[in-house]
Design a protein around this nucleic acid. Structure first.
Length: 529
DNA sequence: TACACAAGCGCC
DNA sequence: AAAGGGCGCTTGTGTA
């Protein structure tokens, strides 16, 4: 059953079936008892406010996210994807650009564009009907329906992650920072240990050098008679000069200070929780992005700051070797699928590569990423011979990309078309480079996007199976974290394994390929690995 | 002063 | 000769 919903000013709204309600949160809470699929223009504008009122919903159809998926599938990547834009296209009206700011601010704007005689609830209903029809017209409607459901569930989960937040011990964070950097400095100053390293760098070069300025560093090395192509750590490690050691130490600590230091915590941590802003579908491959807080780039040293509440556990789980397993399942390669039936896929492959697990891994990664350096060509030749269908699958994706075609994930997420700039480049002299670059992108897209789908489906299933009051608190591509009372952690660990199995069944049906999801219950994130 | 961009590096 | 996909974020730097 579907219930469409639109919000109006002052906390009110409209449900259909139903009608106008003065208090949307209360009405939605009531209607949720029947477990409908909620249909709304844009969950980003609605759900956070419902969460703030303590309302949690089980399923939705998000028009804006679905429109993005449909437009991509239809080869219309980049057209405005708001519900208002979809409505305007249906009626030949001027199509409004997607709002760049917060979705909530878009409501007034949308009202102006759709005319005074069409209410938002009508608009939502009409666009929804249209989308259901267009879903049936996709290459594989069954899969696309699953994609839409998973993406929409992602919208719920992202809002909930932002609402609940990951446990973050400010005292441990401060201790960690103080230990590495010295006490918190006054605004605009470097912490003492950072300043000491900066001074050592200048002393080593015999002149004042700002270690934050790659240009100055290159110059300083030049005046010391050393030519460096860049100031990347990997490059500097090979250089023999007394400035190198303090410089490398400085770079590492400076990053910690500016990315995840006290200022960062002031902005993103409150009440013992780190609340990130996740962006569902923020990456073309369907991976999530963040719009602040850098939740997807938390350095590993920071994991000790993530500590469960007293009497609670963190259940941390990541999908092992997800991408090669996805490839095995998609390509229907019997040999690879057999290896992917093992817990350690690369070890199972090793025999084909002369017994070397590392070689198997390089071959797989090169096939999925388009790698050609080092031993890759030799190992890829082995892969082509031993796992011909898997090899052909990614080669086909690469060739399509080089030819400017679109490729799709397993569930139908579609890569962007090449730009007009790319088409010019490719038809010109030396266009091979651009073609190959896009080939690497599409080669990777089919695998990465399907892996993202698997992870999203897994998380959606898991969310529905968590015992109260357990909560998802973190998600990072192929890894989830659940915060739960310690006595429930066994149940949560089992739910994770079950969710992985169910996601596999939903995407691939009966497959030999296994997707191990190893979950551990810990009190501190740092202890999870 | 404001903004765009590149460098560099963290995560997957 | 070398050649891996995707992102976010901060600082420095150059331009308007």
């Amino acid at each position: 059953m579907h219930v469409t919903v639109a919000s109006t000013a002052g906390g009110g709204g409209v449900l259909r079936p139903g009608g106008p309600v003065p208090d949307l949160a209360t009405a939605v809470r009531e209607a949720e008892r029947a477990r409908p699929r909620w249909v709304w223009a844009d969950g980003r504008a609605v759900y956070p406010e419902l969460l703030a009122r303590g309302v949690r919903l089980s399923r939705c159809h998000d028009l804006a996210l679905t429109e993005t998926l449909l437009l991509g599938h239809e080869g219309r990547y980049g057209e405005p994807a708001s519900a208002a834009a979809a409505y305007a296209r249906l009626h030949g009206l001027p199509v409004p650009d997607d709002p760049s700011g917060r979705p909530a601010q878009a409501t007034l704007f949308e009202t102006a564009r759709r005319g005074p005689d069409v209410t938002e609830i009508d608009l939502v209903g009409e666009v929804h009907d249209d989308q259901l029809e267009r879903i049936e017209a996709t290459a594989d409607p069954g899969r696309f329906r699953l994609l839409v459901a998973a993406e929409s569930a992602g919208a719920l989960i992202a809002a909930e992650l932002g609402h609940d937040g990951m446990p973050w011990r400010s005292d441990v964070h401060d201790e960690l920072l103080t230990g590495l950097l010295g006490p918190r400095p006054v605004h605009g100053m470097r912490p003492v240990k950072l300043q000491a390293l900066a001074d050592q760098v200048s002393a080593a070069f015999g002149q004042a050098v700002n270690p934050d300025s790659p240009q100055q560093i290159v110059k300083a090395f030049k005046s010391a008679g050393i030519s460096v192509p860049s100031t990347r750590s990997q490059v500097l490690k090979e250089v023999e000069h007394p400035g190198v050691a303090p410089l490398l130490a400085y770079k590492e600590l400076a990053r910690l200070f500016s990315f995840h230091g006290w200022t960062w915590a002031d902005a993103w941590v409150r009440d013992g929780r780190f609340r990130a802003e996740y962006v569902v579908g923020g990456v073309v491959s369907g991976r999530w992005a963040t719009s602040g807080g850098g939740a997807l780039q938390i350095p590993k040293v920071m994991r000790r700051v993530v500590v469960a509440d007293e009497g609670w556990d963190l259940v941390v789980a990541d999908a092992a070797q997800l991408e090669p397993r996805v490839l095995a399942a998609m390509a229907g390669d019997r040999g690879l699928a057999e290896a992917a039936g093992e817990i350690d896929l690369y070890a199972a492959l090793a025999q084909s590569f002369g017994g070397a697990r590392d070689h198997a891994k390089i071959a797989m990664l090169s096939a999925m990423y388009g790698g050609t350096s080092g031993d890759a060509p030799k190992l890829l030749a082995v892969m082509r011979r031993r796992y011909p269908q898997a090899y052909a699958f990614v080669e086909e994706a690469a060739r399509s990309g080089e030819e400017g075609k679109l490729v799709r994930s397993w569930l139908g997420r579609t890569c962007p078309p090449p730009s007009s700039r790319w088409r010019e480049l490719v038809s010109g002299p030396g266009g091979n480079g651009a073609a190959r670059e896009r080939g690497r992108f599409t080669r990777n897209f089919v695998v990465q996007a399907t892996a993202a789908e698997w992870a999203l489906a897994m998380m959606a299933v898991l969310r529905g199976r968590l015992p109260e009051p357990a909560r998802l608190v973190f998600f990072q591509h192929d890894e989830v974290m659940v915060h739960c009372p310690a006595e429930l952690s066994g149940e949560v660990v089992a739910a994770v394994a079950g969710a992985a199995e169910e996601a596999t069944r939903l995407l691939f049906g009966a497959t030999e390929v296994r997707f191990p999801m190893e979950a551990v219950a810990v009190t501190c994130y740092a202890d999870a690995k």
